[in-house]
Simulated assay, not measured.
Amino acid sequence: MNNLSKVSEIEVFFRPKYKASERPKMTSSKDAYLILIDVWKEGLMQFTEEFKVILLNSANRVLGIVDIAKGGKDYVPVDMKLIFSIALKASASKIILAHNHPSGSLVPSSADKQLTQKSIEASKVLDIEICDHIIVSNEGYFSFRDDGLM
């Protein structure tokens, strides 16, 4: 047997559980926040920073929410390749970035701003729209879109 036959098969699939008409529709940052706060484990939100992505179809219907990374008290490493490979796999047209601040602060850090800009640049190549980047805490939320930072 030669090395040419030692190639792994790669499967790419996405199995939605609900019809498009049954999925929540995102019309504002508050809609996104309400979904995020519902799925976030409130107890952990106060201890570790986590990064999630809401995947949307072209009609702003939620395809799903993906846990991208978990970090420490004030930092979470985010891999762009992971975000966009999942978005492509789910045939998402749009995404909403989200992470929490365990401190409760809703002020975006310079790293948060840089990550948002890096994501926007990466999304242009793949034709996937970044609708917003939302910072979540038990105190409320901050929307980059609403605050004019996108």
Results as ranks from 00 to 15, higher is better:
residue 136 V to W: 04
residue 140 G to S: 08
residue 54 I to C: 02
residue 137 S to V: 08
residue 68 I to K: 14
residue 17 K to V: 08
residue 130 I to Q: 10
residue 103 S to E: 08
residue 25 K to P: 08
residue 100 N to P: 14
residue 69 A to F: 00
residue 98 A to W: 00
residue 13 F to H: 10
residue 81 K to G: 15
residue 110 S to L: 13
residue 28 S to T: 13
residue 7 V to H: 11
residue 81 K to W: 07
residue 15 R to M: 08
residue 118 K to R: 14
residue 121 E to D: 15
residue 2 N to E: 14
residue 33 Y to N: 03
residue 106 L to M: 08
residue 148 G to R: 07
residue 53 V to H: 04
residue 91 S to T: 13
residue 149 L to W: 09
residue 6 K to R: 15
residue 114 Q to G: 11
residue 123 S to C: 10
residue 83 I to L: 14
residue 75 Y to V: 05
residue 88 L to W: 01
residue 84 F to G: 14
residue 2 N to V: 07
residue 129 E to Q: 13
residue 95 I to S: 04
residue 135 I to N: 10
residue 22 E to M: 10
residue 68 I to M: 13
residue 113 K to L: 12
residue 35 I to Q: 12
residue 150 M to V: 11
residue 136 V to R: 12
residue 98 A to K: 01
residue 38 D to Q: 13
residue 42 E to L: 13
residue 28 S to Y: 02
residue 128 I to Y: 03
residue 40 W to D: 04
residue 123 S to H: 03
residue 13 F to D: 13
residue 27 T to E: 15
residue 93 S to R: 06
residue 106 L to H: 06
residue 16 P to K: 10
residue 112 D to C: 07
residue 135 I to M: 11
residue 3 N to D: 13
residue 58 S to W: 02
residue 61 R to N: 15
residue 78 V to H: 00
residue 27 T to I: 00
residue 119 S to L: 10
residue 71 G to D: 07
residue 145 R to G: 00
residue 83 I to E: 15
residue 38 D to E: 13
residue 135 I to K: 09
residue 115 L to K: 07
residue 82 L to G: 03
residue 50 E to C: 10
residue 22 E to P: 08
residue 19 K to W: 00
residue 59 A to D: 15
residue 90 A to C: 13
residue 3 N to F: 09
residue 149 L to M: 15
residue 136 V to G: 08
residue 147 D to Y: 06
residue 23 R to D: 09
residue 96 I to F: 05
residue 111 A to T: 12
residue 63 L to C: 09
residue 56 L to T: 03
residue 147 D to W: 00
residue 35 I to R: 13
residue 21 S to L: 04
residue 32 A to D: 05
residue 78 V to A: 02
residue 99 H to T: 04
residue 85 S to R: 09
residue 135 I to W: 02
residue 64 G to S: 03
residue 84 F to H: 10
residue 123 S to P: 04
residue 2 N to K: 04
residue 124 K to C: 00
residue 148 G to T: 04
residue 72 G to N: 08
residue 35 I to K: 14
residue 114 Q to I: 09
residue 47 F to R: 14
residue 60 N to V: 00
residue 56 L to F: 01
residue 25 K to A: 15
residue 79 D to P: 03
residue 106 L to Q: 08
residue 56 L to Q: 07
residue 2 N to M: 04
residue 8 S to P: 10
residue 60 N to A: 02
residue 120 I to F: 03
residue 78 V to C: 02
residue 125 V to K: 15
residue 97 L to H: 02
residue 40 W to K: 02
residue 137 S to R: 09
residue 145 R to A: 06
residue 120 I to G: 01
residue 50 E to F: 00
residue 109 S to K: 13
residue 122 A to C: 06
residue 33 Y to M: 07
residue 55 L to R: 09
residue 6 K to I: 05
residue 132 D to S: 02
residue 133 H to Y: 14
residue 18 Y to W: 05
residue 14 F to E: 08
residue 124 K to E: 15
